[in-house]
């Protein structure tokens, strides 16, 4: 029943939220799942650790549609709002997440760095990385 309940929930999730992109982490990372709020906090550098694991957030280049999709669905902030946010954060010594100019390099980065967390199109996902969120 419980198993069914889980499958049901997953299927609902998939049916409801299943999208083309996924948030990935290094395989060594103990996190399996992450909430949208947690994601938002990490990518706005409000939070650095999850379960004692230091998280290194990786963005893609600002002009990529993936980045816009991520900002829209996860951060839920417009570019203007984000810019003013990071400008403010800059005065507190906090810089925005690292960027990689290609999804492949994001994948490689996540694969090589333990605490790295990035987002990729689903078709790039393989066994070398772990998906913890989809959108």
């Amino acid at each position: 029943m419980k198993f069914l309940k889980i499958i049901f929930l997953i299927s609902i999730t998939f049916s409801l939220y299943a999208g083309e992109y996924a948030v990935v982490v290094n395989k060594k990372n103990k996190i399996d799942k992450i909430s949208k709020k947690q994601l938002k906090n990490i990518f706005l550098k409000k939070r650095h650790f999850i379960d004692n694991q230091k998280i290194v957030a990786i963005n893609v280049s600002a002009n990529m549609p993936l980045r816009m999709k991520f900002e829209k669905s996860i951060l839920q902030m417009s570019r203007e709002k984000l810019n003013s946010f990071w400008t403010k954060q800059h005065f507190h010594g906090i810089s925005p997440p690292l960027t990689q100019s290609s999804t492949n390099s994001v994948k490689l980065f996540v694969k090589n760095v333990d605490g790295a967390m990035g987002y990729l199109p689903k078709n790039l996902i393989d066994d070398s990385i772990k998906v913890i969120y989809e959108f």
């Binding site: 990689q100 100019s101 290609s102 980065f109 760095v113």
Partner: peptide
Amino acid sequence: NDIYSKDLDKR
């Protein structure tokens, strides 16, 4: 930090 991504982007 692109060392991690083997400078895939040649940055």
